[in-house]
Design a protein around this nucleic acid. Structure first.
Length: 423
RNA sequence: GUGGAGAUGGCCCAGCCUGGUAAGGCGUAAGACUGCUAAUCUUAUGUCCCAAAAGGACCCGGGGGUUCGAAUCCCCCUCUCCACGCCA
């Protein structure tokens, strides 16, 4: 959520920003109209309330009689007027809120202006693409041959888009989670295990609601959502809090299953590249405003170190204005190379949200004792999404005989095992 | 799930029965006073909105209602604690 004062004072800038993000600017005009009426009613009601407060006090001190009755009658009318204004303001407030919750964050000046994913900028590519002396297989084929992912039975219990890891597949998943969390701990993060369901306040706080509400699983009976990304429960842990400056920065990480309905999206993707439930380790940072862009680079490096540790080739993209998600001001995507599919797979997204989420979730800090509190800046990055990491490992580390070599950093987490072979 | 008790500023807590400008303490900050520190005294210290200032409004878990006027009375909801019940 943007500061309404910024929207009011710089509508032209907001209009240009909406255009760069491919959004309709009608929302801005709707806001400005509702806001100006709302403000004039606020003014009027403030004056009326002042009168009522003063006269009510007089009434309490007056003797019974005509004078008093007349005053009471007058104030009854004032109250009716206030009530009528309040009712209208409530309507306007709904419009104002709806608009302001649907206006995206302002991109940083370093973000390239562009229409869609074709205008994203490749910052660099790292790691050698392996040269195969045989035709590399795709991950689903490897996984079926080794019997480490059971696609059909996953579908049996939960439906299309769900799968079941099995044997060394399940163990590899667990090894990756532990490797990621341990590495983040070394990078200065504190590990959390938050709830997997979140309420509406939480998804409003991080910006998934309302614009992504149809992509989340919703538990109607309890008015709860299945976690779409651990960013949501972690960030919202600090909702409505005013932190002491000395508490910042806060670096938190968590492993958590994530759920996405992916309506109309996954039909073309075989295997586990796009699924409804996936594990992910997430990093969330709360920092002083002046540090957030520098921290974004460190956060990205934290995620890159995981990939480098696994020895996978990858590239870093700087997303353009048209492809960036709603809440962020600047975002890097990290893509792993999958030789079987010959494709780049997004395994991490590292974003600076500036004060956009903090304002929605009311997360503040006090710069100095007795100074007015200000919003913190929040950032988050995946470190990493598990299924696509699994795909990249299977495809990059596959051998001619159909086995898969386990990356060295994962071996301690797999009791020293070096190869995944047929059982 | 049942019964009971609660939710008041960063923290603690009074006020509620009996409606009339939200008291006090702790903490924090500035100042005063004493060789320093401590103690003591004085002052300040809720939020949002009205762009800021001046001024004003709002604020007692959330939402409605009654009233000239609601922290206080009435209704609905949420959460917390205690006891009992059920349960991995």
């Amino acid at each position: 959520m943007l500061d309404v004062n910024v929207i009011r004072s710089s509508p032209d800038m907001i209009r240009a920003m909406l255009k760069n993000r491919n959004k309709d600017d009608a929302i801005l005009d709707r806001f400005l109209a509702a806001d100006s009426e709302w403000r004039s009613l606020t003014d009027e009601n403030n004056g009326l309330r002042k009168t009522r407060n003063e006269v009510s006090l007089q009434i309490s001190k007056m003797p019974k009689g005509e004078e008093k009755d007349a005053r009471i009658k007058e104030m009854r009318e004032v109250s009716d007027r206030i009530k009528a204004n309040d009712d209208r303001m409530a309507e306007l407030e709904v419009i104002r809120q709806e608009c302001v919750l649907n206006i995206p964050n302002i991109p940083h000046e370093s973000v390239p202006i562009g229409k869609d994913e074709h205008d994203n900028v490749v910052v660099y590519e790292k790691g050698e693409k392996r040269v195969f002396d045989f035709k590399p297989k795709e991950h689903w084929e490897i996984a079926e041959d080794l019997d480490i992912i059971d696609f059909d039975r996953g579908v049996k219990v939960a439906g299309s888009g769900f799968y079941c890891l099995k044997g060394d597949g399940a163990r590899l998943e667990r090894a990756l989670i532990n490797y990621f969390l341990d590495t983040h701990q070394d990078q200065g993060y504190t590990e959390l295990f938050p709830p997997v369901v979140v309420n509406k306040n939480a998804v409003i706080g991080t910006g998934q609601y309302p614009n992504l509400k149809d992509d989340m699983y919703y538990l109607e009976k309890d008015d709860l959502f299945l976690n779409p990304t651990a960013e949501v429960p972690i960030t919202n842990l600090l909702q409505d809090e005013i932190l002491d400056k000395s508490q910042l920065p806060i670096y938190w990480t968590a492993y958590l299953p994530s759920f996405r309905r992916e309506v109309g999206k996954h039909a073309d993707t075989k295997g586990i590249i796009r699924v409804h439930e996936f594990n992910k380790v997430e990093m969330v940072n709360f920092v002083l405003p002046e540090n957030s862009y520098a921290r974004l680079e460190e956060l990205r490096q934290n995620a890159e170190d995981l990939i480098t540790g696994l020895g996978l080739p990858y590239r870093v993209l700087l997303l353009c204005t048209g492809d960036m998600s709603f809440s962020c001001s600047k975002c890097y995507d990290l893509e792993l190379y999958a030789p079987g599919k010959d494709a780049w797979l997004e395994a991490s997204s590292c974003s600076n949200f500036t004060d956009f989420q903090a304002r929605r979730a009311r997360i503040k800090y006090r710069p100095e004792p007795h100074l007015k509190s200000e919003f913190v800046h929040t950032l988050n990055g995946s470190g990493l999404a598990l299924p696509r990491t699994m795909v990249a490992i299977l495809e990059n580390y596959q051998n001619k005989d159909g086995t898969v070599t386990i990356p060295e950093v994962l071996r301690p987490y797999m009791r020293g095992q070096e190869i995944i072979g047929r059982r």
